[in-house]
């Protein structure tokens, strides 16, 4: 990770196009994972908060 960061801060001239492409894909993958984790966390938060707010009323429904 730190190696990637170091590479990100060296000038463009020091990286070959292949290295740049490799870094770009790696960063893109990390961003995608971060977005996925964020969305899952949001879904879990909404689910848990709904259960908490409904409390015992979850069971008080007509079937």
């Amino acid at each position: 990770m730190s190696e990637e960061k170091d590479k990100a801060h060296v000038s463009q001239a020091e990286l070959t196009e292949a290295q740049v492409e490799e870094l770009r894909l790696k960063r893109q993958k990390l961003r995608s994972i971060a977005i996925a984790v964020g969305l899952v966390l949001l879904v879990v938060l909404f689910y848990v908060a709904t259960i908490v707010r409904l409390g015992g009323n979850v069971l008080n429904r007509s079937i």
Binding site: A8, Q12, L15, Q28, L30
Partner: peptide, 26 residues
């Protein structure tokens, strides 16, 4: 804007490295 050479979009400041932002940058 450092360069468009490696795919930076017009108006995108600093897209020169073309590796995109990291999660830590956000």
């Amino acid at each position: 804007r450092p360069a468009e050479v490696l795919g930076g979009q017009p108006g995108d400041v600093g897209a020169g490295l073309a590796i995109g932002p990291g999660v830590g940058d956000f």
